[in-house]
Design a protein around this nucleic acid. Sequence first.
DNA 1: TGGAATGTTGGAAC
DNA 2: CGTTCCAACATTCC
Length: 244
Amino acid sequence: MPEGPSLVLMKEALLPFEGKKVTAVSGYAKADIKRIAGHKIKDIRTWGKHLLLEFPGFFVRIHLLMFGSYRVNEEKDVNPMLRLGFARNQCINFYTCSVKILEGEANDLYDWSADVLSDDWSAEKAKTKLAAHPDMLVCDALLDQDIFSGSGNIIKNEVLFRTRIHPLSVVGKLPARQLSALIKEARNYSFDFLEWKRQYVLKQHWQIYTKKECPRCHLPVTKEYLGAGKRRTFFCEHCQQRYA
DNA sequence: TGGAATGTTGGAAC
DNA sequence: CGTTCCAACATTCC
């Protein structure tokens, strides 16, 4: 489910509820979700992997983590973390997710220039942030939500393959051209991901993620658990150059 | 069949 | 006390 592009699709599915009043709230989320009742949803937006439901004076932040899911106007067999009821029996259900309520306006708390899918995305700012972390591995950089908000493990793997950069390359050692390509492709692949996911054909377009053989040179793909979070990483030793 | 995983956090352990 | 590690998450996939 949950890399940035999947959140954009979720937002699209929820858009019909913008401007609608929440008439009932339930769920086992620990946050004070009752206060949502009676308020109209002012705005629905995303920041990376965060879904933001804006109400007057506060907003709800939903993160699907690894296993989260949602349903519109239907129920799953498990209890929802958060259920929002509307007129005429309409509802939104969120399952197995993180729900937080934050005070004020989302605009005051989020920097949309970090969101790889945002109209406000700034490649320049990403470059500045990367320059501030010269020792960081590129496989970690592409998972850093302050630099590439919305990028996840699939995007990481595919972007590194497309740019032919080895995951253990060091940010500060990347030649300017490769650094620019990395930043550009993080956004570019995210939009490909979005459209492929929309068409239910995402998986068939994976070039390296979960693959056994490199599509370029046909040598076996290497699979290792790399980076600070030891995340699953697929790469081609032959086609992806290591800058270290 | 069940181990691993598109993710993050909170708290234990050191 | 800073850093690291790991479990947990009313799950789903292959």
